[in-house]
Design a protein around this nucleic acid. Sequence first.
DNA 1: AATCATTCAGTTGTGCACAATTCAGTTGTG
DNA 2: CACAACTGAATTGTGCACAACTGAATGATT
Lengths: 167, 167
Amino acid sequence: MPAVDALVCFALYAANRTTTQAYRVLLEPWNLTYPQYIALVTLWNDGEQTVGSLGEALQLDSGTLSPMLARMEASGYVVRRRDDDDERVVIVSLTARGVEMREELAHVPQCIAYGAGLTDADSARELIDALHQLTEAMKGLRDQPDTVLAALGAPRRAKAASRRRSA
Amino acid sequence: MPAVDALVCFALYAANRTTTQAYRVLLEPWNLTYPQYIALVTLWNDGEQTVGSLGEALQLDSGTLSPMLARMEASGYVVRRRDDDDERVVIVSLTARGVEMREELAHVPQCIAYGAGLTDADSARELIDALHQLTEAMKGLRDQPDTVLAALGAPRRAKAASRRRSA
DNA sequence: AATCATTCAGTTGTGCACAATTCAGTTGTG
DNA sequence: CACAACTGAATTGTGCACAACTGAATGATT
């Protein structure tokens, strides 16, 4: 048991990768990855939408989404078309096959919940809340590192970080 | 707030990425990534070791570690040499510069803990425990998906998954 | 209307993750 | 010893993430 184990962030890092591995096994028959799966979930729930709004939902930028959506289009799950009213915007929609997948994959969240022992909603809620709290705190640190560094009397970084994009 | 937000796994995924982004800002001046940083932490704590044992500690395989260690060697933080007793084994050691980094980067965990509001050890411990529990559960699902699928009466997968490696 | 700034998606380049393969080196067995 | 089985690291190929940049389309301003 290494020392990094004591760090919350390593536990988070390890849990995230193991979870992705579990999804990989479940999604493999459909040639889907976890990021592709959550994109599908979003489309199932919210309907067709632009690359931008999908990126906002998943917190991913076009550098990640463009190639991923191209692969999903190649798999026949979604289609992309330019918006007639604004040619800059690309609208992502589910194909008939993509809609079908919703029922075919209905077992996945159940399987994860059951496998994770998250049968009772309260413990899941607690974990989700803790993760959201951590996420918000880390956003603060990411965007205002100098504030925290100053509070600790630590060496100030040389220059402001490069601009972060909306995603 | 999209529907995927309700999923523990998305919260985990988002928290992990945001945390990595926070580390990126802190580690940028040293040209370090988060995975490289935790490799350094392991070397600081446990001393020089083989690629294999490092992989065991970080749960990463040689496909990830080999190129990463090569980059860290290029940065002058570690050196790699073949073990004289067993030429298959590569031993990774810190350089003098790599050892120095321990003090230079001492502010990083403090900064993360402070920024995350994890000042009290109990709440951190709780979160870590929940993440470990989730990790173990996901390992079970990853390695024995059919058991869970059967319990749910879900469609069995066509074939056994390909063999997992030690990492 | 002509120009300039902004917005949106896509592209390029780097660095993990990870499956699958390769290959040198070691070990076990007859 | 011969040789098959195994081990450890590296390599190859795919798919995220993400910074930086490009280019087309739109909007704002004059």
